[in-house]
Write a protein that binds this DNA or RNA. Structure first.
Length: 327
DNA sequence: AATAGCGTCAACCGCACCTGA
DNA sequence: GTCAGGTGCGGTTGACGCTAT
């Protein structure tokens, strides 16, 4: 923890006062002060709040701490496959509009989503030697990662019937391999275990462009460019059929669990917001193995749409293999 | 056991925008 | 119109923990 000295000049009496502003990690005491103040007086007017709450922090720092960490409805823990899928799709639509993306993921902050993108998604892009904001990367996301996420979601829903997600609905937003430009039209997954989700979805998704829709960018456009098919809102609704109930308790970074300070009610301990997804991140499913299986599946005979999509499966697989070797 | 490398994420910074005086 | 304060956003940093050597 370090601090900076800020000289404050008061207009009333011209007395200059030195205020030590704290920086760095928040202490439990500071968290408690902030929580109690907001519980009594509400959010907003952060500079005033910082002073009145007795916090030697900037208003910005208080706001950030509250919004990104202390706010009771913050969901913690790994992002679920559903959430990852939604982030991928919304990012392909809006780019780095993190706050806008976060609005569609209840309990997740823009900071968390931004970190996720930078640490995981961009890492995968680097490993594939693809620019994370390139069309090529977008297609890799759509044609490989999203199906894997769907697969994960379906596995999760099969193992746990308590989930509210609707896999059959979700399937409709996932591209069929046959719809992706980097995959030949007559492509069939090498075996049923490679892309079980794809083999299911291929019967649901259209294999031909919908009149009036833009097919050139891959099959997700079916869902997102044609309002008659599926709007983003409807997808979000299908991903989050009900907004998560206001969490009853929450846990500090230091592990101390607190009762919701806003409601002031006592709650059962099993309703903590500490959300832990036992499954790993969806991208490890990519692991280049699926690409390698593509490679093993007679890549030489593929009739890829190189001219249109500006890249070839063989090229991508080669990159993948190269990176695999490095790893 | 020591340490270098890497990944993660909370927190900070700078900038832009909004609003009210 | 303009200025200041408040707020929001996106990019970046740095501390910390884990893993490999």
């Amino acid at each position: 923890m370090h601090s900076i000295t800020k000289r404050v000049c008061h207009p009333n009496n011209n007395i200059e006062e030195e205020t030590e502003l704290r920086r760095g990690p928040w202490t439990l005491e500071e968290d408690t002060l902030l929580i109690h103040y907001i519980a009594r007086h509400g959010e907003g007017h952060w500079n005033l709040l910082a002073k009145r709450a007795g916090l030697k922090r900037t208003g910005k720092s208080c706001r950030l701490r509250w919004l990104n960490y202390l706010k009771p409805d913050i969901k913690r823990g790994n992002l679920t496959p559903q959430e990852q899928l939604l982030i991928l799709e919304l990012h392909s639509k809006w780019g780095n509009r993190w706050s806008k993306i976060a609005q569609h993921l209840p309990g997740r902050t823009d900071n968390e989503i931004k970190n996720y993108w930078r640490t995981r998604v961009q890492k995968q892009a680097r490993q594939l030697n693809i620019e994370s904001n390139s069309k090529r990367f977008l297609e890799a996301v759509r044609c490989f990662w999203m199906p894997r996420l769907l697969q994960k979601m379906e596995q999760t829903s099969n193992s746990s019937t308590s989930t509210n997600s609707s896999p059959s609905t979700l399937t409709t937003i996932i591209p069929s391999a046959q719809d992706c430009e980097l995959v030949p039209n007559d492509f069939v997954p090498p075996n049923s275990t490679t892309f079980p989700a794809l083999s299911d979805s291929s019967s649901i998704l259209p294999n031909k462009p919908i009149p009036g829709s833009n097919h050139s960018n891959g099959c997700l456009n079916y869902a997102f460019t044609n309002q008659n098919i599926l709007s983003t809102d409807s997808i979000i609704t299908s991903l989050f059929p009900q907004v998560e109930e206001h969490p009853k308790t929450y846990t500090f970074s230091n592990g101390i669990e607190k009762t919701d300070p806003i409601s002031g009610l006592d709650h059962e301990s099993n309703s903590s917001v500490h959300y832990v997804d036992s499954s790993s991140y969806g991208f490890e499913g990519l692991n280049l193995d699926s690409i390698l299986e593509f490679e093993a599946f007679d890549v030489s005979g593929l009739n890829c749409h190189v001219a249109e999509s500006d890249w070839a499966l063989g090229d991508m697989a080669a990159d993948a293999l190269w990176n695999m070797g490095e790893m």
